[in-house]
Nucleic acid binder design. Structure first.
Length: 162
DNA sequence: GCCAACGTTGGC
DNA sequence: GCCAACGTTGGC
């Protein structure tokens, strides 16, 4: 099992949208960046995904999802009415892929980007590298574990504080 | 909504 | 295959 982080604008597709999707599962379409696409093609069933809200106030990790279906053709590339239409893609050789994600949990307290930046244990994480805007990125097992721990610790503290 | 940092496109 | 111009991302 490997770990990933996927960015989405909550106005477009939020963790709530995923949770409320049929079977709490949805296709992650619209990725139009080659490196992000290649990362999606590496994903395996049941890999863990940090669900990240970008262009939010504040931006941060808001939940956990699992890969429910490995990379397959993103059909929006063939739909002229779609924002994600790509006239240069062909049916014979589709350019863009998507995976399906299944909702697992929403963090009781989201982890803001700024907190993640401050954490020495997350040094080297792609998310916090300067200028990084990769929307689908790998996360190391150590970073994954630490982030889950942060979410748990934050919960405990909230409970203790009442 | 601004704009810096990236990524892509296309003329040459 | 270089690189200027253009388009996009995403924090702020």
């Amino acid at each position: 099992v490997r770990y990933w982080l996927m960015k989405t604008e909550p106005d477009v597709f939020s963790i709530t949208h995923l949770r409320e999707s049929p079977n709490a599962t949805a296709g992650w379409d619209g990725v139009r960046n080659y490196l992000a696409r290649n990362n999606m093609r590496e994903m395996k069933l049941e890999d863990g995904v940090l669900f990240y809200h970008s262009r939010a106030t504040p931006p941060g990790v808001v939940g956990i999802a699992r890969v429910a279906k490995e990379a397959h053709t993103d059909i929006t590339q063939f739909d002229p009415a779609s924002d994600y239409y790509d006239p240069k893609s062909t049916l014979e050789n589709p350019r863009w892929s998507q995976v399906c994600l299944r909702f697992e949990q929403e963090l009781a307290a989201m982890l803001p980007l700024d907190d993640l930046r401050q954490d020495p244990k997350l040094e080297g994480m792609v998310l916090i590298q300067k200028g990084s805007r990769l929307s689908v990125q790998p996360v190391s097992a150590a970073h994954w574990k630490h982030i889950l721990k942060l979410a748990g610790v934050k919960l405990e503290k909230a409970a203790k504080d009442g």
